[in-house]
Design a protein around this nucleic acid. Sequence first.
DNA 1: AATTTTTAGTACACTTTTGAACTAAATTTC
DNA 2: GAAATTTAGTTCAAAAGTGTACTAAAAATT
Lengths: 163, 163
Amino acid sequence: MKESTSEQAPFDPFRHFEFLTNRIGRLLAKQVGGRCAELGYHFPTSCIGILADLWQRDGIPQKDLAINLVKSKSSITKMLDALEEEAMISRTSSLQDKRSKLIYLTDRGKHFRCVLEASSEEQERKGLTEFSHQEITITKRVLAKMYINLVDAQRKAQHSTYE
Amino acid sequence: MKESTSEQAPFDPFRHFEFLTNRIGRLLAKQVGGRCAELGYHFPTSCIGILADLWQRDGIPQKDLAINLVKSKSSITKMLDALEEEAMISRTSSLQDKRSKLIYLTDRGKHFRCVLEASSEEQERKGLTEFSHQEITITKRVLAKMYINLVDAQRKAQHSTYE
DNA sequence: AATTTTTAGTACACTTTTGAACTAAATTTC
DNA sequence: GAAATTTAGTTCAAAAGTGTACTAAAAATT
């Protein structure tokens, strides 16, 4: 079993979060995007991330979306254009801060949540049969915390002057 | 605790793998990309995924890279152009199958692994202090299996005639 | 063994995403 | 409280990624 040569052990991308999350993220996005297209919703797949944030809390400014979704603010602008086109969201200028625009879901945008959640849960049931409930709970908790930590670091880094 | 109104419970993106993996994937990619740039390597961040696969097994054809990385074959062509430019890999026509090109790491490409792995492990140590060894092991195992299942499904779907 | 079909990779047009420059509003500094 | 700095969002050019059409080779069909 043991190699006594000077050869380096083979690299295992599956042991590294950066590769695992990245690839799984794209694979799942593809799945979700495919299902949405079938259901007749026509906006770029990545826009669903914006809706996810709005389902959690409505009426947030674009800069928050950019930070949470890990996208540039110009990307968010374009994605919102697409979502507005499809009547999923509306932009309203904030009264407190006239620079800022608050993003709200339309009824269509709210309804879409039910559609997606249903198909999403079914997909997850199918895909995660090999794992125990506990394993899945732990995995989600670890990932959720990882995400919060990373986003937080990102948010802070934005304000500091990069060395 | 219980809501007796007809209001829907707030959506929690953190409970869904598609959002968690996608966002964490992009956050980690940003980190890794930043570190590589600092070290003087100048190719698009996503190209590191190609190197990761080659570190695991050298001399594989482009189609395998496309499937494993969840990218189109045209993307892989462009990424390999960039990596070749930076002298990280070389393309060799396969003798068995003259259509196919096998991708090999150069010495520079092999060496880069050590550079990245070192900085990657340090980063992970810092980022995962709150979790037990067991939690991390479970999370990685679940993700690794998820990835294998998803990629496999993808590979099969390619061969079937899409309804 | 000639013809058809499939497969691996490239080329190019098109979409998505980004970075840099810009506008307008808010905040800070003096 | 006027001037300088920072911040939120848009615009536009450029980069990264994809889909379609293509070439050449392999495999399957006849």
